[in-house]
Design a protein around this nucleic acid. Sequence first.
DNA 1: TGTACATCAGTGAACGCGCGTTCACTGATGTAC
DNA 2: TGTACATCAGTGAACGCGCGTTCACTGATGTAC
Lengths: 249, 249
Amino acid sequence: MLCVMSSDEQPRIARSLRARVRDELTSEIKTLARAQLMTEGADLSLRAIARDLGMASSAIYRYFPSRDDLLTALIIDCYNELGAAAEDADLGIPRECLLDRWLAYSHAVRDWALAHPAEFALLYGSPVPGYRAPMDTVGPASRNTAPLLRLLADGVEAGLLSDRLPDSLDEAHWPPLPEPVRGELDRLAGALAVDLPPQLLARGITGWVQLFGLLCFEVFGRFQNMIEDNRGPIFDHQMRSMGALIGLR
Amino acid sequence: MLCVMSSDEQPRIARSLRARVRDELTSEIKTLARAQLMTEGADLSLRAIARDLGMASSAIYRYFPSRDDLLTALIIDCYNELGAAAEDADLGIPRECLLDRWLAYSHAVRDWALAHPAEFALLYGSPVPGYRAPMDTVGPASRNTAPLLRLLADGVEAGLLSDRLPDSLDEAHWPPLPEPVRGELDRLAGALAVDLPPQLLARGITGWVQLFGLLCFEVFGRFQNMIEDNRGPIFDHQMRSMGALIGLR
DNA sequence: TGTACATCAGTGAACGCGCGTTCACTGATGTAC
DNA sequence: TGTACATCAGTGAACGCGCGTTCACTGATGTAC
């Protein structure tokens, strides 16, 4: 049975039973670890995971060399999930509809965050004491910013956005960039490998901070007793305001 | 000796030795607990604190009935410190200089956050698993928003701010509030006991979210490898932009 | 001022848990001839 | 197709730690007469 599979399902050699079981258990461990995030926070207990799996606690070490490595794997998975959700949302909208792309993007980020509050806290909440994220997390971490940067770059390319402010926003309403800020943003644009004028990048950061700042408050429960209803419409309005501020149409 | 004190230093009965020692030890415990926040996070170890004090671990229970109560005390202290810093900064600026008040306020919040990153994480980072903040924290928690609300109310009262947008910001740049949002903000203004038109409150929230969102990123280290230098000027610029957006001058 | 009693800070042992990680070992799966 | 050997998943005991909280007790401080 196991050997019968169409060649386009498994174009290479059929994977060994061992390898398949290994993959399954690896992801089961990660699933249980993520469930633990919710109730216990980022102090994962390997023994509890092993218990849930009905295994000896030492068995986990066949899959992850240490607790921190498991945590790193979770972080990378989560960044990738969030990034993929953001990308998919953006790709569902016609390229020239910049405001709609921004709205689709930001709502997708919010939806993911609300559906996975503990994971969102892992990525954007308090740093985990004693844990230092290795370099492998850097790429996935920036993945969710890509759609936003691409959106802005597309706008510039199509002549829909520029460093000039929208006509009615004069300098009194959007102060000019002081030299050190302009220089820093130029450097950042270079590091991100995008060709964005600094004023536009600054506005992009404003929008991005508003998005994630709002989600930190909402997900971490800071709106409790303040804003209980209509959080969705309020979020939407704030994002529309940011979109207008950036000059998206 | 202990009985010799000028009457205006201690207008009432001289406090007993016991009471004085008790206060000192109470605050020593809190100081050590806050030091632990930095290295170990919010999972306080009462035994470690007792060890540092050279006491039996059970002695802590003469001062705090449980670990969660100690955490609550820390949270209240920190909210009050942050709130006091924000208030002081605001009070140092002439009442009619709204933009300067906003800048002083936001910089004071940032200064406190950077000086006390672990405490800031306790207040605004991931919720502590298993901990539910009691009602005593609600008042102190909102204290730091008071200067901002007062600033906006002062602006309205002096005719410097209104629900009308600044002249050059037409509706395309600041979308009108949909009904549920307007209603929710009206309700919020009532709950906060401030008389602010909803558009203005919405813009105030935008500024507040930008402030705390930016600080979450900075304090939790999300700018690492992205923005290393000139964080102060960038922060200042973002706050000026928000001030302009709100219509502060 | 002195005495009797109440208060309460601090002790130290105990209860009943938890944890990450290592290591020598067993036995099943996979591979090369 | 069958055999010999290598790989590696999983075990279970052990090491050396950690923790919050309770409780009966001692002895110093505070208070009322």
